[in-house]
Write a protein that binds this DNA or RNA. Structure first.
Ligand SMILES: Nc1ccn([C@H]2C[C@H](O)[C@@H](COP(=O)(O)OP(=O)(O)OP(=O)(O)O)O2)c(=O)n1
Ligand SMILES: [Mg+2]
Ligand SMILES: [Mg+2]
Length: 1106
DNA sequence: ATCCTCCCCTAC
DNA sequence: TAAGGTAGGGGAGGAT
């Protein structure tokens, strides 16, 4: 009721909720008190009424509030009947007939006066907000957080100033509320400017248009000193070299070269001599400078240089690349959030061997091996950034210390981490230093040392991995360990061992929490801190959570906290009183479920490696022919320092990002690429003719192989077994749309602050449709299928069954002790074509182009460029590679055709056909090698221009390609000419079962449909194991071979994919027909010869059957 | 219904 | 001065 969405839908356009983004103060403002109990209490009433009112009166908030509301309404009705003037304009009813107001906050006139007006003029007045009853919210002024809550919970309702009521009364008629809307909401409505229009304008002028609406323009200005305008682009273009450096920084080195480029980091064993210098002026309290494992930023050479180059005075000059060409680089080097944000990639790189192949589907094992209880250990470093820096300064241990860029007591630099003495004063991470100093005037501020954090994090994880092979990294100082394997062993002992090793190795302390699930383990760590450990047995969970503030639950941030607050829910105990369905209605199915579970300490997630997931063994073809199945999207982005349109640079970045993905190329189902935060190009400074971005991009849809031959050779492509630069592949996925974007944008270069991000879609197994009410009985679940699912999916399903899945698996495990994993044979399927999220979710303002699926043709898309008019600070260029992948874990046994999605190597040929040559050309070497590994080993390995060496795959000896070509010449390719094509009439008169079947299939299938479709129908209708003699004569054999060969010739330039499908169908059919086996033996070598000739490699037809 | 797009939210 | 990045989950609502 309270959050009842039955009312008019709010349109995003008319009431945009994007102010967070555009509001520069964002969450930095002190949080205002928000919607009072009036909002929440009623909501509780409504949400609880359904299921809880049966119990004793006032058993919960709900029944109490419901009763209260009822009485209030009755009272209002009584009052109304005595005070109503009844009159008012035409209707004979009051002018406010049908109007029901809720007064929010302080108003003039007061809410009681407004209530009086309502009484008099036929309206209603609600003491508590209810979306089903309230028609207008009356409000004079709203703090930010209330505005947000209004957006969240009262969509579609007018929020109107009280003068609307007064004026209406004065006018004796109901005035339109529109002129009385609250400015805050109205102005935001007007403020919302479509990005497209922004760029449309930009396109015309090709510069930042001074005529842009103030809001947009204003936002840009509001970015303050860091913002840059189009004028800054000029400098970026000529200095592309720096980008490479930056790339190396992020990618190749195992050390983090943050603001301190040369500081040597000691571990605890090293002697305290030779400390990094400390800038004394930064230390407010100690007389002598403590020994810090860090330097201040101002000691940084780079920073100094940047100051030297500073032009005097103007802050924009100093705080932008205008005055300091290294500004952005230095900015990122000093950014803690950048450090944290990019840490995971570095971790993956370093510890990938530890996660090697280990599917932390630990859940699978756990569920099968252990009873429903797992044991989770959570380890988190104590005040990490501070600890590391002061680890060799014992004199600071008991003093309040925080890490911050600035010690300025009036400054707005943010506290990154505060030690526990400082926390006693109320100092917290994220605070402005001035507030921290206000809390604690003698707070010692120490600088960051990112390199040391990196080293300590490595040590930390080395220790964790040593003790456990199921480690889920949360962040650089925090991880979950699944220690269920300990069985009888003592997890607490392991925890203390690990903590001791961490302390010995790093000189910093860590705390640990142990519990039956991730959620509670994390909460336990919080109790344990600092330098302690805590075990929460499951029977204590309930008690502990009861009074825990909801904000303490991971996943509940300020926004959800506010929403819950408006429901008068502050702690977990209160949250538990709201039924699950109500929470799901108010917060959505997933979030609602999470809230319900969390408040009870329930968490069915399992320890797993985020991302490096692989398709399950049992995963099989998508049911849909050529379907992509369900996709999982992965993306990596990189912000580069300076604008560039140099394709070489972009390609280098793409490679690097691909490397980060650490993904089995065979799992890849498509690639997308997004470049954002673009800037205008200075024509005179564009990259070399050959390397310009727009050419690269344009070629994606142009089959411009010459250009990419250039690119390729310039990069020293030495293993070009398959020279993609020579491949005349059809660019399937891209697309006019893409080109349009490029051109509409004017001449764009990635502006500083752009980032580059590959989005990957890779198989994730099928998702079970969210259908909470109709779950199949748990006993009907195929255990083998279940086991083949990725852990998160199991977790999700487990969730849906409220954890009963675990027991179910346990029971099954006991039944089948051998644990042999048979082939997945089930039946139950859901195949979604889902290529969307891969591309869509790029949290900037960029215009997005989708990699579209074209009748199931998927794999690689050409680059997609999108523009970005981000009103936030531009600090780098952003490029994103979007990739789409697909799979399904299901197969349909009666579906005669495999699609390309599933079996490992299936993808490769598809990629070949669908990849635009230019894109594939850009793949990282490892990726290419992977691709080429799918091909027979004897292809040439040494050609820079891969097409130069052609090797014929001689898997079948009974045909000579030359012969074949001669014959082909004779027939002059005419089997495929005409409509219907020649072969139809030719085969029509044949007695051959197969040929006749083809003809029949031709007529049954869509006109102009692909041969693969015809073939599929024809072959699926064939009986098994027909005798060769019955099936066809020599002549028929020849005819059908010709048909295939000619089809190869016809399509090899444009659609390898189609060829691939046909040949796979053919290959599959060979098990049921000797005739077709003969055909296959003849045409397959021909196919490979042609492939070699055209692409310098073979087409792998592996389908799992051979 | 489901997909697609555009966000919002959260965590470190 | 100060360096408010990055990645993923997920909801709302329009399009289909
Ligand atoms: N708003 C934040 C939160 C965290 N961090 C950085 C500094 C922290 O040291 C590190 C780890 O975050 P934690 O949440 O683990 O916080 P601490 O380790 O500092 O303290 P605790 O002892 O509570 O874990 O991330 C940050 O820069 N800004
Ligand atoms: Mg910590
Ligand atoms: Mg942490």
């Amino acid at each position: 009721m309270s959050f009842d969405s039955s009312r008019s839908k709010r349109s995003r356009g008319s009431n945009p909720s994007s102010s967070d983004r555009t509001n520069p103060s964002k969450q930095k403002k002190p949080r205002n008190r928000t919607l009072g109990p009036a909002w929440g209490a009623n909501s509780i009433s409504s949400v609880s009424s359904k299921s809880s009112s049966k119990r004793s009166p006032f058993a919960n908030f709900g029944s109490y509030m419901e009763e209260k509301n009822r009485k209030l309404r009755e009272q209002f009705d009584t009052d109304a009947s005595t005070s109503s003037v009844g009159g008012g304009s035409s209707s004979g009813k009051g002018i406010f007939s049908g109007v029901s107001i809720f007064v929010d906050g302080f108003t003039v006139p007061s809410n009681q006066e407004l209530r009086g007006y309502m009484l008099k003029h036929g309206g209603r007045f609600e003491n508590y907000f209810s979306k089903s009853r309230v028609t207008h919210i009356i409000c004079s002024n709203l703090p930010d957080s209330k505005v947000k809550n209004l957006r969240a919970f009262s969509r579609g309702l007018p929020v109107v100033k009280p003068t609307w009521v007064l004026d209406s009364v004065a006018a004796d008629r109901l005035l339109s509320w529109i002129p009385y809307q609250l400015e805050q909401l109205v102005s935001e409505t007007r403020a919302q400017q479509k990005l497209s229009s922004f760029f449309a304008l930009k396109n015309i002028s090709s510069i930042v248009n001074p005529e842009l609406p103030m809001n947009i323009h204003g936002k840009i200005e509001e970015e303050g000193p860091l913002s840059k305008n189009d004028g800054t682009v000029v400098k970026f273009l000529s200095e592309v070299g720096n980008i490479t450096k930056h790339g190396d920084l992020l990618g190749e080195d195992s050390s983090y070269q943050g603001q301190e480029s040369s500081t040597e980091v000691r571990n605890s064993e090293s002697s305290p001599g030779g400390e990094s210098s400390v800038k004394e002026s930064h230390q407010s309290s100690p007389n002598k400078a403590p020994t810090l494992d860090s330097n201040f930023c101002t000691d940084n050479k780079n920073a100094k240089e940047s100051l030297d180059t500073t032009c005097s005075g103007d802050s924009i000059m100093r705080h932008s690349t205008l005055g300091d060409p290294n500004f952005i680089e230095n900015y990122f080097k000093s950014s803690r959030l950048h450090f944290i944000g990019t840490w995971r990639n570095r971790y993956r790189k370093r510890f990938s061997s530890k996660m090697n192949g280990v599917k932390y589907g630990s859940c699978n094992d756990n569920m099968l091996l252990n009873s429903s209880e797992s044991v989770i250990l959570h380890v988190d470093m104590d005040c990490f950034f501070v600890s590391v820096v002061i680890r060799n300064s014992p004199e600071l241990y008991d003093k309040p210390v925080a890490v911050c860029h600035s010690d300025n007591p009036k400054g707005t630099a943010e506290i990154s981490s505060a030690n526990y003495p400082a926390r006693d004063y109320g100092v917290r991470a994220g605070m402005f230093v001035r507030d921290a100093k206000a809390h604690c005037p003698h707070l010692v501020i120490v600088p960051y040392n990112f390199e040391a954090y990196e080293v300590v994090a490595d040590q930390f994880y080395a220790i964790l991995h040593k003790h456990c092979n199921k480690v889920q990294a949360v962040s650089c100082d925090e991880a979950f360990l699944d220690v269920t394997f300990l069985e009888g062993g003592d997890p607490e002992k392991l925890a203390s061992t690990i903590r001791q090793e961490i302390a010995d190795t790093t000189g910093c302390t860590a705390s640990a929490g142990i519990a039956g699930n991730l959620l509670v383990a994390r909460l336990a760590t919080r109790i344990a801190k600092p330098n302690g450990q805590c075990f929460i047995p499951s029977e204590k969970v309930d008690d502990y959570l009861k009074d825990l503030l909801i904000k303490a639950l991971p996943g509940i941030g300020p926004a959800i906290q506010e929403k819950l607050k408006s429901l008068d829910v502050h702690n977990c105990g209160q949250l538990r009183m709201i039924p699950r369905e109500d929470l799901q209605r108010d917060f959505g199915p997933k979030l609602g479920n999470m809230l319900w579970n969390s408040s009870r300490g329930i968490d069915n997630r399992m320890v797993s490696v985020v991302q490096v997931k692989k398709r399950r063994k049992g995963a099989d073809e998508p049911m849909k022919y050529m379907g992509c199945g369900n996709c999982e999207n992965i993306s990596r982005s990189m912000t580069i320092l300076k604008a560039t349109d140099n394709a070489n640079i972009l390609q280098r970045i793409v490679r690097q990002l691909f490397g980060y993905l650490n993904i089995d190329v065979k799992e890849v189902r498509g690639i997308g690429l997004q470049i954002s935060k673009l800037d205008d190009t200075d024509m005179s400074k564009q990259g070399h003719e050959d390397n310009k971005l727009d050419l690269w991009l344009a070629s994606a849809s142009d089959n411009s192989r010459e250009q990419f031959g250039t690119v390729s050779s310039s990069q020293g492509n030495t293993n070009g077994d398959v020279s993609l630069s020579n491949a005349r592949c059809k660019s399937i996925l891209v697309n006019q749309e893409f080109r349009d974007t490029v051109h509409n944008s004017g001449r764009c270069v990635d502006a500083p602050g752009s980032s580059f991000q590959p989005h990957i879609n890779q198989p994730s197994g099928a998702r079970i449709t969210e259908e909470p009410t109709i779950l199949p009985p748990i006993c009907s679940i195929d255990v083998e299928v279940l086991k083949s699912l990725p852990p998160e999916i199991i977790s999700e399903i487990n969730d849906m069954y409220s954890g009963r899945l675990t027991e179910f698996l346990e029971v099954n495990k006991m039944k089948d002790d051998k644990g042999s994993v048979s082939d997945c044979t089930t039946s139950y399927s859901e195949v979604k074509s889902n290529g969307s999220k891969a591309i869509h979710d790029l949290k900037d303002y960029s215009t997005r182009n989708s990699v579209t699926r074209n009748k199931g043709k998927l794999p690689f898309s050409s680059p997609v460029v999108s523009q970005n008019g981000s009103p936030t600070k531009d600090k780098g260029n952003s490029l994103q590679v979007l990739q789409t992948a697909s799979t399904s874990f299901l197969r349909s046994s009666d579906f005669p055709v495999t699609s390309m999605g599933m079996v490992k190597s299936d993808l490769m040929p598809v990629s070949l056909s669908q990849v635009d040559a230019s894109i594939l050309q850009q793949l990282p070497e490892e990726l290419k090698v992977d691709l080429l590994d799918l091909l027979p080993p004897h292809r040439p390995k040494d050609t820079a221009a891969g097409s130069s060496g052609i090797s014929v795959h001689n898997g079948s000896e009974n045909i000579n390609p030359e012969t074949s070509v001669d014959q082909l010449d004779e027939l002059s390719c005419n089997l495929w000419m005409g409509d219907p094509p020649k072969w139809v009439e030719k085969f029509e008169v044949s007695n051959c079962t197969v040929l006749k079947s083809l003809v029949k299939s031709y007529y049954q299938s869509e006109r102009n449909g692909p041969f693969s479709t015809i073939l599929q129908f024809a072959l699926s209708s064939l009986p098994h194991f027909t005798d060769l003699k019955v099936e066809g004569l020599e002549e028929d054999l020849f005819s059908l071979c010709e048909l295939f060969k000619q089809y190869v010739q016809l399509k090899i330039d444009s659609d390898i994919e189609e060829i691939y499908i046909c040949f796979r169908l053919l290959k599959r059919s060979t098990i049921k027909s000797e005739f077709l086996l003969e055909v296959y033996n003849v045409v397959h070598p021909f196919l490979q010869a042609s492939m070699n000739e055209n692409y310098g490699g073979n087409l792998q037809l592996y389908d799992g059957l051979s």
